[in-house]
């Protein structure tokens, strides 16, 4: 069984796209589309990697990341952040909050796979 990746994203088509390419690359993909319960979901069954969207309903990706990093057990969990807003301020904020990788939408599939692999094996 491959490594587990949790995709937290609210756009159904993007979830489908990410699920498709990650599964094809051998990952076990779980998805979650709501901001509010995202942290509970992560803690309940910690994945090997989290792919986190910024604009989520209920709670932003930044807030989720902040809460995640506040938990000592979750400080090492690799997080790859996706944003459609693409502003440098978002990137800076994400880095400050302890993100591992940061990708701006739209992304190429290769870019996603490359980053995901780097985070888990590296």
């Amino acid at each position: 069984m491959g490594k587990r990746v949790l995709v937290i994203e609210d756009e159904p088509n993007i979830i489908e796209a990410l699920s498709f390419i990650l599964s094809r690359d051998g990952w076990t993909v779980h998805t979650h589309s709501d901001g509010v319960n995202a942290n509970e979901r992560i803690r309940a069954t910690p994945p090997d990697l989290v792919i986190l969207d910024v604009m989520l309903p209920g709670k932003s990706g930044f807030d989720i990341l902040r809460d995640l990093r506040a938990d000592p057990e979750m400080q090492a969990l690799p997080v790859l952040m996706l944003t459609a807003r693409g502003q440098t301020r978002d990137r800076e904020l994400a880095e400050k909050l302890g993100v591992n990788r940061f990708i701006t939408k739209p992304f190429s599939n290769a870019e996603v796979i490359e980053n995901v692999r780097a985070l888990v094996t590296g």
Binding site: E11, N13, I14, A17, L18, I21, A84, R85, G86, T104, K105, P106, F107, S108, N109
Partner: peptide
């Protein structure tokens, strides 16, 4: 970017 992401990815 959201629709473009889907379009590009697919």
């Amino acid at each position: 970017r959201t629709p473009m992401t889907s379009i590009r990815s697919f």
